[in-house]
């Protein structure tokens, strides 16, 4: 059994190991305003290029992706920042989020007096959310662990078994080339933590909502940037449970320390 982990009760989102406030830009046009608000209130946000000029199945697909991120168990509250004329309408997105979690607000740039007006209104709303939904801690022993498999991993089966024996649920996602799409899938699957085995030709990467433990291969690139990795593959079976407990209890991974975390929404069509 895993040691007891100090976690957070996040309503219908479930039990999380981070207490993130997500400042969610519903469109690329609101990413900069979202970053300013997140910086001021200590929230998390991310740049992306979606939300408008999308067609076909991607309209529902991107909308559902944003909903999944907002409903992630590591999220305590959500502030949607919309522009106003985009395809993914911020207020409709917020309404969908409110159906399952009341810790949601939204602000619209075109209706809040522009950039400065929205930053001020957004900071105020984010602080209200923080006051209304203070961290509620509890103890847990079971987590959902995502494993991003970007290369041949000889210890995969043993690792999976070790995590399951410790009481964790394991989700495996194979990545092609970079880990970006795999991370997005694991976020939608509500993994608390990701253990990433990136392709030998790929650097480490992170994700805004979930701590990513990057595992180094013996490859030339990975050993050259060993400092960006949390652990070597050769040590993982011995150390992973301790590392998971430590990260779950709040120790930042290197990707978290580096604020590394771009996201890519899966697109089945293309933008126009």
């Amino acid at each position: 059994m895993s040691a007891s982990i100090k976690a957070f009760a996040h309503g219908n989102r479930g039990v999380g190991i981070r207490n993130h406030q997500l400042i969610l830009p519903s469109v690329i046009c609101s990413t900069h305003v979202s970053r300013r608000i997140a910086t001021e209130v200590g929230g998390v946000t991310f740049a992306h290029q979606h939300g408008c000029a999308i067609i076909g199945d991607d309209v529902a697909g991107i909308d559902n992706f944003f909903i999944a991120l907002a409903d992630h168990p590591n999220v305590n509250s959500v502030l949607v920042i919309a522009l106003g004329c985009e395809t993914i309408q911020g207020q409709e997105l917020a309404a969908k989020l409110l159906e399952s979690n009341e810790s949601t607000q939204y602000r619209i740039i075109q209706e809040s007096g522009g950039v400065e007006g929205t930053v001020a209104a957004g900071v105020k709303a984010a602080k209200e959310l923080n006051a209304a939904f203070p961290p509620a801690t509890l103890e847990t022993t079971s987590l959902r662990i995502g494993i991003d498999v970007g290369r041949e991993v000889s210890v995969l089966t043993e690792l999976q078994k070790a995590l399951q024996d410790a009481g964790h649920e394991v989700i495996i996602s194979e990545s092609q080339s970079s880990s970006a799409d795999s991370f997005s899938r694991l976020a939608q699957e509500k993994a608390h933590i990701i253990i990433s085995f990136p392709d030998e030709n790929q650097p480490t990467s992170g994700f805004p909502l979930m701590p990513v433990i990057n595992v180094a291969s013996n490859g030339v690139l990975h050993q050259a940037i060993r400092a960006d990795f949390d652990i070597d593959e050769s040590a993982i079976l011995n150390e992973i449970l301790t590392l998971i407990d430590s990260v779950a209890s709040g120790t930042q991974t290197i990707a978290e320390k580096n604020n590394s975390g771009e996201i890519r929404a899966p697109r089945v069509v293309r933008s126009v």
Binding site: S178, A180, S205, S260, G261, E262, R264
Partner: peptide, 30 residues
Amino acid sequence: LHSALASSARAIADASNGAVAISHDWSGEV
């Protein structure tokens, strides 16, 4: 030149004396 470096690019620009940065989501996919 890789999306994993985009957060760094922004941090560099923010900490510099006026440089600018872009971010993108290309991770070298072929």
